[in-house]
């Protein structure tokens, strides 16, 4: 490359690299503590998302910052996992009765655990998608297909097709799209990596599994966005098969525009349309997550009954940290 990166830009990239490197080190350390601790009394959990990419040494782990650790357990063990982890300093973050119920009855994960001394956060999942989601995913398929890691790890990681599916399903069922571009890059890097490693067989397994789990309609827009924004290569046969799971032709254009604007960063030229798209995606995400009556109940509670602190969200006061 002839031209050098301007110094200020290079500095920020270097800073991002340092922070990501440290984050990976800290995540690995936390996982080692979890793996060697009381969780040994349960069947080996499956690391999801960032933790899985890191442990499996996948290309999207480099430079990626994870803000929490996600572990998947069989549904009948997740409660015990929470109790055991309590003795190692992991405590449920304070939630009121509504939020407790929201998580425990309707969601696919328990309320996030926070380590008492270190402040690290841990999500215990028993499924990939909420219990009340538009389609019910069978978590057994993911648990049974998970691959072991080299010793001394007890932890397992999802099979390649499940890694890619989870990344796609997670983003395209999401309410918050703040880290959308990173999540789209995950999908891109994963499918390109597994395509290179396993060839077209990977695509067949991916789509078979997507159809078996009933989530192909979420994979279709994920790969379409990947193709447009990141140049994700999808073999013709797979593209044709995905096509059948896409939205009807009249809805395709608006849906594509919605996702494209949702994926824009805050430094975009279309801030108003992006904000509109973010609002629409928030509604869409909630709509998919809960049946309408439950959604109405949840939103009404959040609007009128939730304690002040829970609602205000975001934004510290300027003096909170800086003198």
């Amino acid at each position: 490359m002839q031209e050098r990166l301007p110094e200020p830009a290079a500095r920020h990239l270097w800073g991002g690299y340092l922070a990501a490197e440290r984050n990976a080190e800290a995540v690995r350390w936390e996982l080692e503590q979890l793996d060697g601790g009381l969780l040994g009394r349960l069947s080996p959990p499956v690391a999801l998302k960032g933790a899985a990419y890191l442990l499996a040494g996948l290309p999207n782990a480099a430079g990626r910052v994870c803000h929490d650790i996600d572990l998947l357990f069989p549904a009948d063990e997740v409660g015990r996992a929470e109790s055991l982890l309590f003795f190692e300093g992991w405590q449920a973050s304070p939630h009121d009765a509504h939020d407790q119920r929201y998580y425990r009855q309707w969601m696919h994960e328990l309320p996030p655990l926070v380590h008492r001394r270190r402040g690290a956060t841990l999500d215990l999942h028993h499924n990939l998608l909420p219990e009340t989601f538009a389609v019910r995913v069978e978590p057994r398929r993911v648990l049974d297909a998970a691959a072991p890691l080299a010793a001394p790890w007890r932890l397992r990681v999802p099979a390649p097709e499940h890694l890619a599916l989870h990344a796609a399903v997670h983003l395209f069922a999401e309410t918050e799209w703040q880290r959308g571009l990173r999540d789209l890059y995950d999908i891109h890097a994963l499918v390109e990596h597994f395509q290179a490693a396993r060839g077209d067989r990977f695509w067949e397994e991916l789509l078979d599994e997507a159809e078996a789990l009933g989530v192909a309609w979420l994979v279709e827009p994920a790969l379409a966005c990947g193709r447009t924004l990141l140049g994700t290569r999808v073999p013709a046969a797979a593209a044709e098969r995905l096509e059948r799971h896409g939205p009807p032709r009249w809805r395709r254009g608006p849906m594509r525009a919605l996702f494209r604007h949702g994926l824009n960063t805050r430094a975009s030229r279309t801030p108003r349309r992006d904000a509109l798209a973010r609002a629409a995606l928030l509604l869409r995400g909630h709509w998919l997550k809960m049946p309408p009556t439950l959604l109405a109940r949840h939103l009404l509670y959040k609007a009128f009954r939730a304690p002040q602190g829970a609602r205000a969200g975001g934004g510290e006061t300027p003096t909170h940290r800086h003198g």
Binding site: A26, W29, C66, D68, G119, T121
Partner: peptide
């Protein structure tokens, strides 16, 4: 400095690298 030691370094510095970000 490992994950545990980082916790010892005061309120400002103690923000864990695996904590929810903005």
């Amino acid at each position: 400095v490992d994950g545990a030691a980082a916790g010892g370094a005061g309120e400002r510095a103690a923000r864990h690298p695996v904590a929810p970000g903005r």
